[in-house]
Computed example of a mutant assay.
Amino acid sequence: MNTREQHLVELVGTDGTAIGETTVDEAHRAPGRLHRAFSVLLVDPDGRLLLQQRAAVKTRFALRWANACCGHPGPGEAVTDAAGRRLVEELGVATVPLREVGVYLYQADDPDSGRVEFEYDHVLVGSFAGTPEAVDPAEVAAVDWVAPDELVARMARSPEFYAPWLAGVVDAWRSSER
Rank of each mutant, 00 (worst) to 15 (best):
E160T: 09
H122Y: 04
R115D: 10
A108W: 07
E160H: 12
V103K: 03
S175T: 14
P111Q: 07
A129W: 01
Y106Q: 10
A68Y: 01
A68S: 11
E89A: 15
D112P: 00
Y162A: 03
R86F: 06
G47D: 04
C70K: 04
A141Y: 01
S113E: 06
R29T: 12
D81K: 09
E26A: 15
L87M: 13
R64I: 01
R60S: 14
A141V: 08
S113Q: 07
V101Q: 04
W165C: 06
Q107D: 09
A18F: 01
A55L: 07
L105D: 15
D110C: 14
A134K: 13
L105V: 15
A55F: 05
E26G: 05
A141D: 13
E119Y: 06
F128A: 00
W65E: 11
H28I: 09
H7C: 08
G13Q: 13
Q52L: 05
G74P: 02
R86H: 11
T14P: 13
L8M: 07
A163K: 08
S127M: 10
L34P: 07
P148S: 08
E133F: 00
R157H: 11
R64V: 05
N2M: 09
E21C: 04
L50R: 02
E100W: 00
E133V: 11
E117W: 11
V140A: 03
V9Q: 00
R60M: 10
R33Q: 15
Y104D: 15
E119W: 06
T22I: 03
Q107A: 14
G20R: 02
R86S: 11
V43Y: 00
R54N: 14
A108M: 09
V169L: 00
W65G: 09
P73R: 01
L34N: 05
S127T: 13
V169F: 01
E10T: 02
G74I: 03
G84A: 10
V140L: 03
V125W: 05
G76Q: 06
V143R: 01
R99E: 14
L98P: 06
F161A: 15
V140D: 08
D121V: 02
L87Q: 03
A56P: 09
T80N: 04
D81S: 14
A134C: 10
L49A: 06
V12L: 07
L8K: 10
E77Q: 15
V93T: 09
E177K: 05
A66P: 02
H72Y: 11
L41V: 07
D109S: 12
G74R: 13
R115Y: 12
V152M: 13
D112E: 14
A147F: 03
P75C: 02
E26C: 03
L51W: 08
V57C: 14
R29Y: 01
L51A: 05
D46W: 02
E77P: 02
